[in-house]
Every structure is written in structure tokens, then in C-alpha cells.
Design a protein around this nucleic acid. Sequence first.
DNA 1: CCGTATCCAAAAGGATACTG
DNA 2: CAGTATCCTTTTGGATACGG
Lengths: 138, 138
Amino acid sequence: MATRTAAQQREEARRAYDAYLAECPARQLLDRIADKWVTLVLSALADGPRRYSDLGRTIAGVSQKMLTQTLRALERDGLVARSVTPSVPVRVDYELTALGVSLLPVVRAVKDWADGHIEEVLASREIYDGAPRGERAR
Amino acid sequence: MATRTAAQQREEARRAYDAYLAECPARQLLDRIADKWVTLVLSALADGPRRYSDLGRTIAGVSQKMLTQTLRALERDGLVARSVTPSVPVRVDYELTALGVSLLPVVRAVKDWADGHIEEVLASREIYDGAPRGERAR
DNA sequence: CCGTATCCAAAAGGATACTG
DNA sequence: CAGTATCCTTTTGGATACGG
């Protein structure tokens, strides 16, 4: 029939929305800094350049794959600069670009809010988890 | 043997780090607002209370599952308040709490940075994607 | 030392159907 | 209307082995 099903309409809406989101700057940035390892790498580089292996040790839990993947993404976005010293063995340093440095205050803003309000959030969770269903719905 | 393998040591480090991160306030907050739908719901509620179905329509691409899941998470964290009107059929409204409102400037800070620097990021990506490997490694 | 390539387990998330 | 429950596909990310 000519009429689209509800499922089709929803899927169409989802696609249009995806296309919109793909272009939304804030969305793109959030997708980037949302990543677990991105913020850790950014913070690790806040004090100055570091070598690849140094980063791996500082960010203790990261796998080689994720560290490389994260650094590549940041490099691609111009937030981090990669410099190779062709010694033997090779030495690779990473450092924040000016653009990367300009992002630090944003990361800091997130951290500050978290530090200032986490108590409230945790308290809220405790109530939510502890309260019987009737309590919440009233 | 008594000596741990490199893999074992890394896994131990990862576990310790995970435990640390699980308690890190900034990490918890980032995990929350990093979510694709969370920021959209927060923004949709910035102007005032909205009904569940209204949110579903405004945030066009969201599935019922994710909308509910997102709202529950925000409610648990005390960022959003849920109020049920026991009419027939039932009516449910969501609105930002004071805590939720206090988070808006942070979201805005992210958005502002994105709007102000996305051009640089996009330009960087273009160069990165277009440049031969030798260019980048020099 | 600094990665890349491959494989695989776990988790996220959409579609669908059903309920109070 | 406002969800909940189930299934199933896609994505994520760690482990491992290998290359420059």
C-alpha cells in the first residue's frame, strides 16, 4: 500500500536525524571528548609533551590499540601533534596543539561541575535505588 | 612461576584503574553527558517540562527503549524529575531539577567551543585525510 | 620502541510485541 | 499514553601476534 508503516516513518526520521547530527558541531565534539580515553590523554598531555610509551604507562589501564586509536583521532582533529624522531629505536612524542590547549578549559568545566555536584548526584542515586516504587511515583 | 606475565600485570593495572575511574566524579559525569541521547533530552527540557510522548517526537530519532532508559538514568542522578498525573490515560511529565539546570551551562560551554572551533577541526581532518603518510611523519 | 592486523567476547542499541 | 520485555544485529574494545 501507499501508506508508510509507523516503522518506516520512524526509520526515515532516524535517518534524517542521524544526518543532522552528523553535521552538528556540538555533537561531533561530544562524541570526541565523551570517549573514556580521550579525556585521559588530553589531561596527561596538559603538562607538556610525552612519549608514546610514557602515555601508556601513565594511563595505566589502556590497551595499545585504544591508545593508538585515541591518539590518531586527536591528531586528525588537530588537537594533538605527533612528532617522530628517527633515532634507533624510533622515538615519538605527542603534545597538545594550540587548539588542544584551548579545549582544556572545557574539560576543566566538566570536571569542576562534577567535583562540585557529585555529592548531590550520589545522594540522589541512593534515594532512587532505595525507595520503593510507590514512593517515586507519588 | 612467581613472576607475573606482562599480560597479568596489565590486567591488574587495568582493574585498579577501572576501580579508580569508577569513583572519579569527572569520569562519572562524562559517562553520563557523553551519551548521545542525554544531551538531547537535557536540551529538550531546557525550556520547560515536557511529556514523554512529546520528547519522543521532538527527539525524532530516538527509540522508545533509549528514551526511557535515558530518562531513568537522569532521574536517578537527580537531574530530571518525573511526575505522574493519574488520569486516564496516564500523563507523565519530565522537567529539569535545579541540579539539572545547573548543568546546562556546562553543556553550553561544550557547544560554544564546538561552534567556535569546528572549522579548525574540519580543516585539520581534511589535511590529515588528504596528506600522504610521509607528509605527516616528517 | 612504536605501532598494525586479526580475532573474538562483551556491550550497546534498535525492532518488535505486549501490558497497566 | 507510557512504558516493559525480548530478540537480534552492530559496535566496541581487549588480547594476541606480528612488522618497520
